[in-house]
Design a binder for these strands. Structure first.
Length: 854
RNA sequence: GCGGGCGUGAUGGAAUGGUAGACAUACCAGACUUAAAAUCUGUUGGGGCCUCGCCCCGUGUGGGUUCGAGUCCCACCGCCCGCACCA
């Protein structure tokens, strides 16, 4: 007999409808506007703001979703939340686009911002959009110019000569990124180094303070603190003036290992050292070598990797302690002018680089010490023991013999100071921050160059110094240089014709204080002290690990500089109380080759089961960061269109710990969607239950619920979003199978909605409304776990024998140690293993484990 | 080259020094269906044996500390991030 099935029009989970509805509801209730009030604590959560490339990508979705979870959780736990968004809008890509496709960087940038804002809004982020700004808004960069002038007055900015990459064909300055294998990316010409006068922030003056203050940043990842510490690079050493034999003064060398002075066999100076420069004119060989050095990449990585080369200058210096010993002065391509004094002494026996150099150029190798009981001379491998190891110094001038290198260094510094041969010094690796950029699309540096008055700050009432709109990018170089009506201006001091500075600021300047501007984005001063005092510091900052050093260090410097110049109140020197560095979103790469064997990449949406639509098999390359060039990108808009924002949000949080990379997979997204549908269906089922229905297992369900509240709360507070989601999966399964009463199930589904709300806010609102919850789930108070519901009466302990699990034992949770031991020893597994003997030792960790050692 | 990080089933991953593999994917099996999809249920690290119970091996490799190591220490291998003008 055939059954007749009537198909009811089952309501289904419909994200487009739900998400639009609740976004509108939030907007109408204006729930995300940051408000100040005395009755609640404040919470400032910030994600590193995006560069307006024009398209949001999954990395953005992950970053902003994490911040949103925190922001929504803090809102639910009774905080006044500040969660703003802006645009890091200056930079090279806008100029590149103008060169490549025409148009104007300004139009390109603002169009991109409009596009990206439109792409971001469907994510349902709890952002206070009323505070939005872009760093290319004159209202923003004008305030930045004002900060610059105050820094200048406070002596925090100065000018000095520094090198840039110069493309001799395009006649333009290149960024490191634009130098490919030593050649300009457009022209292909050999890049040269060129010296320009540029502006610098005196960040090195604060090196010691920036280093020591790292200790207080307890809520920063230890690895970021360590990276910053190493970057700042504090070292204790000595500045030694080596006297030239030609009576032409001294060459000062900085060394952290003066204890190896016995083994000194040469001096190496930077190609940019004054000694090198002074000899260049009369010595063609030196000039040729220095010229070759100037063609090297300016990046530190390239310098370090390059073959170590040098040339003897012919100059000799006297050894500071050994009378009659002379050392040759070489120019070394590996010596940095920016670090120390731009000159070092080489001790080949105790430094591998110096040893390689000495062997190459046949310079003497002489030990300053050897290891106790092993007095061998260095041959092909330098002897570099840890500074804490004891070594035996060879006829050391300060009279030290068998001691640690660390003590040897200190004793040598004391000896040099006592004999007036040098001065102990604490040096930092950190260099001053060069902020001048020879580009158009950046914040103009607000100074004027006057023939009579020199460098004159622009008057504050003339700010902002706005970028002119009538510029073209048909030829390389900075359009500001060839814009007479903008460039020519009266001197602010004497009024005579003068010229504006045409360099603009590094975009890192823009991002070094935007977090402070968000506290009063429309103020007619850079900040409003009252608002800054209320909202600062950023309680939780979230962004990529790639910013671990520069951006964060520059921001820490800026906060101090703004404090000094009165733009931030005291206590804001460390602007980010807590930092979280999240991982990337990755995807597999699909590759085929064209008929010439060249690689052809394919978009994920064009690949099904490892094949293209025409059946061609693709090679699958393991996951890597999503990038346009590899085509391994998934467009968030496409995902939102097919599954909804909640699915995208849920997935980017679910699969990996937030600090690690997450691989985007179609099946993972599908699973997230299925799960949300399941939750929606459970809600629907409970809604259809008889309100008076009784059931079984109410207490079990509620216990599970309280455990889930506890675990999810902990997960959200500790950035364990993936773990929190695993708990939510578990609780959903429990609820799905539950036969409990309507009352208990309704409580469970409403709590589930609340716990899911930070991650999937639209679905949560819909469930909340469906079950007749009051108001919005977004503003409902966060559920609190009942401690009484969390404790259980018994506990099951694994029993190990010699560290290997051999059984288990269930005992009352409060049973004392001795009794646990007694019961454990009585178990079959232990009895069998003991075989009539007695254990050597029994370890009982209450509530955790029993280990019997036999 | 230097600094930092990571490495666990077929896959993403879980695990305050205390039961390795939670949760999810994939696969396989079952239920429902004429069928498929959807949904639901269950199995799945490898090997072995006196096969419904137990044993051995197992967290990149090799050492070490510990009653006990994925976790701590040392060395090595591989991958990722940063290296100061990419943002």
């Amino acid at each position: 007999m055939s059954k007749i099935r009537i198909s009811f029009p089952m309501p289904t989970y419909s994200p487009p409808e739900i998400e639009a509805r609740w976004q509108k509801a939030w907007e109408e209730a204006d729930v995300f506007k940051a408000r100040r009030s005395a009755d609640k604590p404040k919470y400032y959560v910030l994600e590193m703001f995006p560069y307006p490339s024009g398209r949001i990508h999954m990395g953005h979705v992950r970053n902003y979703t994490m911040g949103d979870v925190i922001a929504r959780y803090k809102l639910a736990t009774g905080h006044n939340v500040l969660h703003p968004m802006g645009w890091d809008a200056f930079g090279m890509p806008a100029e590149n686009a103008a060169m490549a496709i025409g148009g104007h960087p300004k139009t390109w940038t603002y169009d991109n911002i409009a596009d990206m804002r439109g792409q971001m809004k469907p994510l349902g982020l709890s952002i206070d959009w009323s505070r939005e700004f872009a760093t290319c808004d004159p209202e923003y960069y004008g305030q930045q110019q004002s900060l610059f002038l105050d820094f200048l007055e406070a002596g925090l900015v100065y000018r000095k000569n520094a090198q840039v990459n110069w493309d001799p064909v395009d006649m333009t300055v290149l960024a490191n990124e634009q130098v490919i294998d030593g050649k300009g990316w457009r022209s292909g010409a050999e890049v040269e180094r060129r010296e320009l006068t540029q502006w610098f922030f005196k960040i090195s003056d604060m090196a010691g303070e920036l280093k020591s203050a790292l200790d207080g940043l307890d809520n920063w990842p230890a690895k970021v603190r360590l990276m910053q510490e190493n970057w700042i690079g504090e070292s204790r050493g000595i500045d030694i003036p080596f006297v030239r034999t030609d009576d032409a003064g001294t060459i000062r060398c900085y060394s952290t290992r003066p204890d190896t002075m016995r083994g000194a066999s040469f001096i190496a100076v930077s190609p940019d050292h004054p000694v090198a420069k002074s000899l260049e004119a009369d010595n063609p060989d030196l000039a040729a070598f220095i010229d070759e050095c100037r063609k090297m990449d300016t990046t530190e990585a390239a310098m370090e990797k390059a073959e170590k080369k040098g040339i003897d200058t012919g100059v000799r210096v006297k050894h500071p302690v050994y009378d009659g010993v002379e050392l040759p002065v070489w120019i070394g391509n590996f010596v940095l002018m920016d670090y120390g004094t731009g000159a070092v002494f080489g001790c080949p026996a105790h430094d591998q680089r110096d040893l390689d150099f000495a062997r190459k150029y046949d310079l003497p190798v002489r030990n300053a010490f050897h290891m106790p009981g092993n007095p061998v001379e260095v041959e092909s491998e330098a002897l570099v023991p840890a500074k804490t190891e004891t070594v035996v110094y060879i006829d050391h001038f300060a009279g030290i013999t068998e001691t640690t290198s660390q003590h040897g260094i200190d004793a040598t510094i004391d000896y040099f100071e006592a004999h007036d041969l040098g001065e102990g010094q604490t040096q930092y690796r950190l260099r001053d921050w060069g902020l001048s950029r020879q580009r158009y699309w950046g914040c103009p540096i607000p100074v004027v160059h006057c023939e009579d008055c020199g460098v004159v700050p622009e008057k504050k009432e003339n700010l902002p110094v706005e970028l002119p709109d009538d510029v073209t990018f048909d030829i390389p170089g900075n359009p500001l240089d060839r814009h007479p009506t903008w460039r020519d201006t009266p001197c602010p001091s004497c009024g005579k014709p003068a010229k504006r500075e045409t360099d603009t600021m590094d975009t890192f300047v823009d991002s070094s204080w935007y977090f402070a501007r968000f506290t009063a984005p429309r103020a007619d001063t850079p900040t409003n002290l009252d608002d800054a005092a209320y909202w600062m510091n950023v309680d939780q900052y979230i962004g990529g690990i790639e910013h671990a050093i520069l951006h964060l260090l520059y921001s820490r410097f800026f906060a101090r500089a703004m404090r000094i110049t009165g733009h931030l109140p005291q206590g804001c020197e460390e602007p980010f109380d807590a930092l979280f560095t999240q991982g990337m979103v990755t995807h597999e790469i699909y590759l085929t080759q064209d008929d010439k064997g060249r690689p052809v990449y394919h978009l994920p949406e064009d690949v099904t089961d490892g094949k293209l639509s025409d059946g061609t098999e693709v090679e699958i390359i393991p996951s890597a960061k999503m990038s346009k060039s590899k085509k391994n990108v998934v467009d968030p808009l496409g995902i939102i269109a097919s599954y909804g924002a909640d699915t995208a949000r849920w997935f980017v949080l679910s699969d990996s710990p937030p600090e690690r990379d997450v691989e985007w997979t179609a099946s993972g997204a599908e699973a997230a969607y299925k799960h949300l549908t399941r939750v929606w269906n459970i809600c629907d089922r409970i809604g259809a239950m008889d309100k008076e229905a009784s059931g079984e297992g109410d207490n079990d369900l509620l216990r599970a619920m309280h455990k889930t509240i506890h675990d999810v709360t902990l997960g959200v507070e500790s950035f364990g979003f993936n773990a929190a989601i695993a708990r939510l999966y578990g609780f959903t399964a429990t609820l799905q199978k539950s036969k409990a009463s309507h009352k208990a199930q309704r409580e469970a589904i409403m709590t589930l909605a609340q716990l899911m709300a930070p991650m999937t806010p639209h679905l949560a609102e819909d469930i909340w409304a469906h079950q007749g919850g009051a108001g919005l789930v977004t503003t409902a108070p966060w559920p609190v776990a009942d401690e009484k519901m969390l404790v259980s009466d018994t506990v099951t302990l694994p029993i190990q024998i010699n560290g290997k699990r051999r059984g288990e034992l269930t005992v009352p949770a409060d049973l004392d140690k001795a009794e646990v031991e007694k019961q454990a020893l009585a178990t079959q597994a232990v009895q069998k293993a003991l075989d009539g003997g007695s254990p050597k030792k029994v370890i009982v960790v209450p509530g955790r484990i029993v280990n019997v050692v036999i």
